[in-house]
Design a binder for these strands. Sequence first.
DNA 1: CATGAATGAGTGTTCATTCAT
DNA 2: CATGAATGAACACTCATTCAT
Lengths: 227, 227, 227, 227
Amino acid sequence: MSIITQNSLLTPHDPTKRVRRKESRPHDILAAALDIFIAKGFAAARVEDIAKHAGVSKATLFVYFSAKEELFKEVVRNNISTRFIEWGEEFEHFEGTSCDMLHYCLNSWWQRIGSTKVSGIPKLIMSEAHNFPDLAVFYHQEVIQPGNALIGRILQRGMDRGEFRQLDLQYGTYTVLAPMIFLVMWQHSLGHCTNQLTPMMPQRFLDMQLDILLYGFCTSPTLTSIS
Amino acid sequence: MSIITQNSLLTPHDPTKRVRRKESRPHDILAAALDIFIAKGFAAARVEDIAKHAGVSKATLFVYFSAKEELFKEVVRNNISTRFIEWGEEFEHFEGTSCDMLHYCLNSWWQRIGSTKVSGIPKLIMSEAHNFPDLAVFYHQEVIQPGNALIGRILQRGMDRGEFRQLDLQYGTYTVLAPMIFLVMWQHSLGHCTNQLTPMMPQRFLDMQLDILLYGFCTSPTLTSIS
Amino acid sequence: MSIITQNSLLTPHDPTKRVRRKESRPHDILAAALDIFIAKGFAAARVEDIAKHAGVSKATLFVYFSAKEELFKEVVRNNISTRFIEWGEEFEHFEGTSCDMLHYCLNSWWQRIGSTKVSGIPKLIMSEAHNFPDLAVFYHQEVIQPGNALIGRILQRGMDRGEFRQLDLQYGTYTVLAPMIFLVMWQHSLGHCTNQLTPMMPQRFLDMQLDILLYGFCTSPTLTSIS
Amino acid sequence: MSIITQNSLLTPHDPTKRVRRKESRPHDILAAALDIFIAKGFAAARVEDIAKHAGVSKATLFVYFSAKEELFKEVVRNNISTRFIEWGEEFEHFEGTSCDMLHYCLNSWWQRIGSTKVSGIPKLIMSEAHNFPDLAVFYHQEVIQPGNALIGRILQRGMDRGEFRQLDLQYGTYTVLAPMIFLVMWQHSLGHCTNQLTPMMPQRFLDMQLDILLYGFCTSPTLTSIS
DNA sequence: CATGAATGAGTGTTCATTCAT
DNA sequence: CATGAATGAACACTCATTCAT
């Protein structure tokens, strides 16, 4: 039921090797790298496994990507950076309440990232950024900043339209980001090992989390502005 | 400014070796292990570094701890498991609103774990549980379950006293857990590298997050029960 | 005078590294492994020594052989298993008395195995099988069973032709095997250290042993069948 | 059914520690050493295991025995060297045919050594003499020479009394020694792993071997003297 | 272009032996 | 005397990266 099925690694691509057009090599490698990085993390992923999974030799991989880190960066660019353009456009033309917009934000994130194997990338970054500072900086620029900008836009819109209380944009953004980060972390770590005991249904969590974000726990809220 | 200053590792304990009182070796090693595990993570931490940091030889370390994993488990038991007893008692006798209780919960967690180097432990687990399933299971039993039970108690109390809306305990708990996990993950990964650019003040984040958890973003909440 | 000159290990192959024809690496490693295993035994042989003796790095060795045990198995296959085919054929077409056949058996064993460094392999197995059960099982299937079958064939032939007394095949086989095992054990252990004091000439031992096996110590034998 | 039951190691001596008279320490250690050396061999035996099995600390062991090798030598002196005195006396007064004497020799060896755990000692020596030349020399002087002298005495007696053919004493002795060495080697190595497949009954082997030694395989022996 | 072949620098873990108390 | 405590030197196995062909 989980997205992260380690066994999928055992069935390599086999892209009918002989017939492929030449330019597909890097593409195959990136696809394989995505799978292996997600399954093992950055440090624990073995370049040899990526190459094998892509159906090329280790040396070939280094023809296209100068180092493991560069390969990873390219994986990020291909799988995440590209998404922000369409999100930006969708947000540009969004109509409806800001509650709906937040709802849409979380749900489309879930459909396009959270529920797919790509969710392994943010998990990997949060896990290993400390040991690979270059990756951290890269990811911050490439993903976090544009992502946060999008979330910030929703909050600002909500405040502008009087739907949301006045709140600090930066920290408000983190408040929306937190459950997303939590979800990918949980799914790819403890959730992966304990889902039999206490299964966690992500969709359910997101729904509830959205409700709480909008209305809070309390029965009789004291409305104040937060700064 | 950050708790996690990698360079601190370069100045080993030097506990004036010869004069030590008995029984201090395991304690030294555990302290060193905490530092190194936090600085490097589990897989990347080298046993030799831990030993050196503790001022003992690698072989000595293995006299007291049969394996790297066992050493880590002991670190967890020493630094986290022990806390739940006092938390349990405090919660037993807590008086005041459930809002205050949630506030107290997040703040005492922040003071005792979140703001200290011990916060590196939950970060490490979320990061590496996937690659070390044994540790995942151990941590789930030893920390997550008792921790979640404590949070659940607050929510139940809030509902019982009519302060909180009716909500699903399990997912409500995750809603409280999420910002804590987010915070430690952020601090120990991207935050560590990007604090110069866009500094994040954890205390501020927690305050705001608490407000949102209680009252939500919205100006005019629609009160419903969530299940 | 001894086959097993430990010092020969100190002069590695030096196969003028760069000029080698392809496919020679595994062969070099197997040759080196044979030497080192014989000189040190299985447990005491260091993989690094084998690599050095073969003129390659430790890592290279593991490119070709996944583990020390696998390397050893391959050594056995290359040096012993292969012999049984020719022996089988020779036995098929043997003409002459069964006494001659037994004589031929012991002597060709001596020339092809016993007197060569390969004799170190059975010695090693008898010595270390207890500590490495996998190797024991492997060797039993790969060497002992086919070897015993050959010996059994001779005894059966002798009985069929009325040359030998009726005797239990299994234990009769052990009776022939015993002096061979004794000889390799002795040569590679005590004999190696005490040959100056009381030299033992293997050829002489085998001749005498054969005579005893055929005719016994006694001057006036009481002929009975043994079961 | 086997003499060599590794599990026996799991039940340490427990010599009611507190009540023992002091002089028993070395005795306990020697007893423990015998067990462990037999179970693991010399190199693979861990001093710590011996100490634990004897109920003393590793350091205490080194108070009584300056090194692992010295401990082993003492084990040999205690368990084997001592036997030769009684054997020598028995042989002095033996009456009966030399065939009977050889029979008695093999059988009493089997009862006192071969079938007991002490048989692990000659096995160990044959296995590891090459790597520990000191032990080889020691064992040769302490055991092999007196043992061979005893066997030689029987053969000489047989020749003197006209019961045996004329044969070279040294090699004749090896002919008797061979099945004994074979038996202990087999029992403690391959036999230990393959007894389920093709069980070997030592008593049966010895009986048969004795018969062959005396009368040979052949139905119509050609009697000659062997030199 | 693609790769077979090779490796240096690690890693966690083991064990006989020493020595101050 | 007895031991708790400590360790140096090994050792099997790994992996990102290089380079000649």
